[in-house]
Computed example of a mutant assay.
Amino acid sequence: MRKWKRVEAADGARFRSALAAHESELLRSLVTSMVEMLDERETSSPTDELEVLTGMKTGHSTAPEDDTMKRLLPDFYRNQSEHPAGSGTAESLNSALRSLHEPAIIDAKREAAQRMLDTLPAAGGKFELTEADAECWASAVNDVRLALGTMLEIGPGTPDRLPEGHPMAGHLDVYQWLTVLQEYLVLALVAK
Rank of each mutant, 00 (worst) to 15 (best):
E102C: 02
R110V: 02
E135Y: 03
A134P: 10
L129K: 08
D118I: 15
A108C: 04
A123D: 11
Q114W: 06
F127L: 10
A138T: 12
W137K: 01
K126V: 14
I106F: 03
E102Y: 10
M116V: 14
E131K: 13
A112C: 12
A113Q: 01
P121L: 05
E135V: 14
R115F: 01
E111I: 01
I105G: 01
T119R: 08
E131P: 01
E102K: 08
D107N: 02
D107Q: 06
E128K: 05
C136K: 02
L117F: 15
L117V: 09
E102M: 07
M116C: 14
E135S: 02
A123K: 07
T119Y: 03
L117C: 08
P121Y: 10
E131Y: 06
T130I: 07
H101D: 05
A108G: 11
A112M: 09
A113I: 11
L117N: 03
I106Y: 01
D133L: 05
P121S: 09
K109C: 08
L120S: 05
R115V: 09
P121C: 06
A134L: 12
W137P: 00
A138V: 09
T119K: 04
A132N: 06
K126I: 11
R115E: 04
E135K: 05
Q114Y: 05
P121M: 06
K109E: 11
G124P: 03
E102G: 02
I105P: 01
A134Y: 12
P121A: 10
D107W: 10
A113Y: 04
A138C: 02
Q114F: 11
I106H: 02
A104H: 07
P103I: 08
L117T: 09
R115K: 07
L120P: 00
C136S: 15
G124N: 04
A104W: 13
W137S: 01
C136M: 07
R110M: 09
A108S: 12
A113P: 00
M116G: 05
Q114T: 13
E111T: 02
A112Q: 11
A122D: 06
A104T: 00
K126L: 03
D133Q: 15
A113S: 15
I106D: 00
A108L: 12
G124C: 03
G124V: 08
G125E: 12
A134G: 12
E131C: 03
G125R: 09
L120C: 06
A132K: 13
A108P: 00
D118E: 15
D133T: 14
M116D: 03
D133G: 09
A108F: 08
W137L: 01
L120R: 12
I105T: 12
